[in-house]
């Protein structure tokens, strides 16, 4: 008799499986899980800790907080950050002070590990939420993070 019992049981399990998929088919409109990406660009908001690319925030006076200490360059595991720096004489104290010429960031090499952000003593760089990083030319992935003509914010010390 187990022959017929097996057939019956088998058909029952098949039908209960079909019930699950059938239920989703009928509620397909409500249960859609995919996002319609280019259309939902306006409403698509990444989480605040999302790691998309490294940026250097500047304030309204075009001032940043980077002292050129190179902590991020040392912390970076794959050489994505290069800092070109120089020294100039501070007019007030007369001492030579380090400043950044270019804070170069190679997005093409970055693995978004966040170690540079953690290493930065002055919170000069942070991770941005932008994730659409595709470009047609590879050179566009090498960025200079400090804006032209920007300078160190007053009071930021190493």
């Amino acid at each position: 008799m187990s022959y017929f019992g097996d057939i019956g049981k088998g058909i029952k399990t098949l039908l209960s499986g079909m019930k699950v998929t059938g239920k989703y088919f009928l509620n397909a409109r409500k249960e859609i899980i995919t996002q319609q990406y280019p259309e939902n660009r306006d409403t698509l908001e990444m989480f605040e800790r999302f790691r998309g690319e490294v940026v250097m925030p500047h304030d309204e006076n075009n001032e940043h907080r980077c002292t050129g200490c190179q902590a991020c360059e040392i912390a970076c595991p794959n050489g994505s950050i290069e800092i070109v720096w120089d020294r100039k004489v501070d007019e007030e104290t007369g001492k030579k002070k380090k400043y950044i010429v270019n804070h170069i960031y190679h997005l093409s090499m970055c693995t978004m590990c966040n170690l540079c952000i953690v290493a930065c003593p002055t919170d000069a760089i942070k991770m941005a939420k932008k994730f659409e990083n595709a470009v047609f030319d590879r050179t566009a992935l090498t960025k200079v993070l400090n804006k032209p003509g920007s300078k160190l914010m007053d009071g930021v010390e190493e």
Partner: peptide, 9 residues
Amino acid sequence: IAAFFQLRL
């Protein structure tokens, strides 16, 4: 139909 079974569009 496959898409609706699979919760896609």
